[in-house]
């Protein structure tokens, strides 16, 4: 079933489900999307760190980066039939929250801060989030994170493994792409898509985008593009399809994306069953311990 959880509840107010098709075959890595997102959403700058990882100094999605453009330098031809051409290619891809049909973050949020909008998107309500952090490891794509401002010193970024110190978290809430909920309400396209000069980020009704993506895939396959594939387009995948899906030119993991993401709550019924059994076992165990008398 690929109807977003909670979306149907809107009844009359329900809007067409919208999302993104990010076609990385035309992404020029200009990062206009990153900047436009920050400008529009007042997302803070979070550190001047030279990574040396090609032209990517943003590194990852997080509380302060709702769009992230990945840069991958590869010794692979762009097209399969291109033996004599330049053996080098430079893949660029703008990542974002996937607005999953079955969104783990939303499922696990204990406060209801994360909710499904009438557009079928997934949004954090900043006035409700209490920073419990549960959504952070729940997301199969590592999209969400807690905001720490002032930012951690470069040497202790979260990726390096150390846990944040209590004194470094004056904001403490989690943040992520809202698919520009405010702009959607005003009838505008999201800031990142608006800024994208090459239409690598295409915004629109999801059904339309899927059709467009299928045509695009076919074209690029005919043109022999190396590694071309759609990622997250399939409504039958582990998260019920992405609201923001991609055309990639290599395996997802190359871009830092999980190859076969699954919404963690898919396994929750079984997990609850185990938990209930174990809870029962606790009682049984305790009762059993009384069998041997008082001493």
């Amino acid at each position: 079933m690929s109807v977003p959880d909670g979306w149907l509840a809107y009844g009359d107010e329900q809007q067409e489900r919208v999302g993104f098709f990010t076609d990385t075959s035309v992404c020029i890595g200009c990062k206009a999307c990153e900047v436009a997102c920050k400008e529009w959403n007042l997302v803070p700058e979070d550190g001047l760190v030279f990574t040396g990882e090609s032209y990517d100094n943003t590194s990852t999605l997080g509380a302060n980066s709702w769009r992230h453009v990945a840069f991958i330098e590869q010794e692979k031809p762009l097209r399969l039939d291109d033996e004599d051409g330049e053996p080098l290619r430079w893949l660029m891809s703008s990542d974002v929250c996937k607005h999953c049909t079955h969104a783990a973050c939303l499922d696990v949020c204990p406060t209801g801060s994360l909710f499904r909008t009438e557009f079928g998107t997934v949004v954090v309500q900043e006035d409700i989030c209490n920073g419990c952090g549960y959504c952070v490891p729940a997301c199969p794509f590592g999209v969400l994170d807690k905001r720490h401002i002032p930012s951690l010193p470069a040497t202790t970024t979260r990726v390096s493994g150390s846990e944040p110190q209590a004194s470094e978290r004056p904001d403490g809430r989690v943040w992520k792409c809202t698919l520009c909920y405010d702009r959607l309400k005003g009838g505008h396209e999201p800031a990142c898509a608006k800024a994208c000069p090459t239409d690598s980020i295409q915004f629109g009704p999801l059904d339309e985008l899927r059709a467009r993506a299928d045509a695009r895939l076919e074209k690029l396959q005919q043109e022999n593009w190396n590694g071309v594939q759609l990622y997250g387009r399939d409504p039958d995948d582990g998260v019920g399809g992405f609201g923001a899906f991609f055309l990639l030119l290599d395996e997802p993991e190359v871009y830092g994306l999980p190859p076969d993401p699954v919404v963690t709550t898919r396994d929750l019924p079984g997990l609850w069953a185990q938990t209930a059994l174990a809870a029962g076992a606790v009682v049984l165990g305790v009762v059993a311990s009384f069998l041997g008398g008082r001493r």
């Binding site: 990062k31 990153e34 900047v35 920050k38 400008e39 803070p44 700058e45 979070d46 550190g47 001047l48 760190v49 030279f50 032209y55 100094n57 943003t58």
Partner: peptide, 12 residues
């Protein structure tokens, strides 16, 4: 501009 500086934070 912070939003640009963080994208290319060092002379290389």
């Amino acid at each position: 501009v912070p939003y640009l500086s963080e994208l290319q934070p060092a002379m290389f």
